[in-house]
Design a protein around this nucleic acid. Structure first.
Lengths: 195, 195
DNA sequence: AAATAATGCATACGCTCCGTATGTCAATGA
DNA sequence: TCATTGACATACGGAGCGTATGCATTATTT
C-alpha cells in the first residue's frame, strides 16, 4: 500500500459528489438534507464541510462534473457529423436533448443558477458554452455563417434551448410541444447561415 | 365606516406582498426570513399563512403582481411605436431592460422558476409572454414576419432575452457586454422579418 | 524511531427557521 | 344580543444548518 491515503480521500470526495448529485437531481437542492444524503453515502456532514466548505460548495463541484460530461458529449456529437454545419445543428439538438434530462435540467438550469447565480459567469465560460462557441468560430472561419459575435450567438442559443427544454419538459403534451419547439429552434439556427 | 373590514384585509395582503417583494427582490427568496419581513410590515407569520398558505404562495402572489406590471409596461411600449415592427423591436428591448432590473431579474428569472418551476407554465401563459405572442400574431397577420409558430417564437425571445440580461447584469463590464448582447439579439430578431 | 504536527472526518451543541395547533378579539348576521 | 365566522397572533415542536470540538490516522521532524 504505497498511498492508499490519497485514494481514500478521493473516494470520499467522489462519494459526496455522487450522493449530492443524486439528491440535487431528484428532490432538488433546497429539499436535499445534508444529513440524509451524506448518511446514504456512509458519511456525515463533517466530511462535506471539510471538503467543500458548505452545501453550495458541493453544488458547485457537482455542476463542474456535469458540465464536463456535457462538454464531452457535445464534442463527440459535433465530431461525428459529416459537415461542419450539420455538426453544429446536431450539437444544438443534443444540447436541447440534454436539457430535457431531469438531472441536468434541475441542477444545471434550475437550482444551479438560482443558488450560485449565473453559472455561465462564475466560471470562465463553462465548457458547454465554450463548445458551442468553438463550433461557431469554425463555421465563421469557413464563411458558413453570417458575421455575428460568436459568444453572443452561443449564449443566445444556450438561453433559447434551455427555455425550449423547460417548455417541453413541463408541457402537458411533451411530444407535440417538442415538435413545435424544435422546428422553431431550427428556424432560428437557419437564420444564422449565410444566404 | 361602511366596510373598513375588507379594506383592512386588502391592506394586510398588500403589506405582505410588498414586504415579501422587497425581501425576495433584495436578499432573495431562500434568505428571506418570514419572521423578519412580516415583522417589518408590522405583522406576523400568522397573517402570511392565513392569506397565502405558505412562503411559496406569497412568492406566487408577488410574481403575479410583477407580471401584471411588466405586461402593462410592454403594452405601453408597443402602443407608443409608429409601426408594428418597430413596436415589436421596442417591446423586446424593453423586455431586456426590465430583465436587467435587479428585482425583476431575481424574482422572475432566478428564484421564481427555481421555487415554482417554469413560471411560464403554471399559469395559463403569463402576461409578459402573451404580450409578445400577441405582437407576433399581429405582425404575422400583416405579413411582416416569416411563417413561424408565434408562441414558440415568443418563448425563444423570452429565453434569449432573459439570458442576455443575466449575462449583462453579471458581467464585469456591463456596458460593453450590453452592446454585444443587444446587437446579437437584434440580429436574431431581424431574421424573423420577411425578406 | 519517538515525538509532535497536521489532516480527514465524526460528534455535539446552539441557533434559526418553518409548519401547525391553538388562542383571541372584532365584525357580521340573525 | 348572542352566536359564529374570520383575521390574525402566540406557542410549541421539529428539522436543518454552521461551528466548535474531539479523535484517530498519517505525515513530519529530530
Amino acid at each position: 500500500m504505497r498511498k492508499p491515503r490519497q485514494e481514500m480521500i478521493a473516494e470520499t470526495r467522489g462519494k459526496l459528489i455522487a450522493a449530492g448529485r443524486r439528491a440535487f437531481g431528484t428532490i432538488g437542492y433546497a429539499e436535499a438534507s445534508m444529513d440524509d444524503f451524506t448518511g446514504e453515502a456512509g458519511l456525515t456532514r463533517g466530511a462535506l464541510y471539510h471538503h467543500f466548505g458548505d452545501k453550495r460548495g458541493l453544488l458547485q463541484a457537482v455542476i463542474m462534473e456535469i458540465d464536463a460530461e456535457m462538454t464531452e458529449r457535445l464534442n463527440e456529437v459535433s465530431a461525428a457529423a459529416s459537415t461542419r454545419w450539420q455538426g453544429f445543428v446536431d450539437e444544438c439538438s443534443a444540447y436541447i436533448e440534454m436539457a430535457l434530462e431531469p438531472e441536468i435540467q434541475r441542477i444545471m438550469f434550475r437550482d444551479g443558477p438560482a443558488v450560485l447565480g449565473d453559472i455561465s459567469q462564475w466560471q470562465n465560460t463553462p465548457g458547454c458554452i465554450a463548445a458551442l462557441s468553438r463550433s461557431l468560430d469554425r463555421l465563421k472561419a469557413d464563411g458558413e455563417i453570417i458575421d455575428i459575435d460568436t459568444e453572443t450567438a452561443a449564449r443566445l442559443i444556450n438561453g433559447a434551448s434551455s427555455h425550449m427544454a423547460l417548455w417541453i419538459a413541463n408541457a402537458e403534451n411533451p411530444e407535440a410541444v417538442s415538435k413545435r419547439a424544435v422546428a422553431g429552434f431550427k428556424a432560428m439556427l437557419g437564420s444564422l447561415r449565410r444566404q
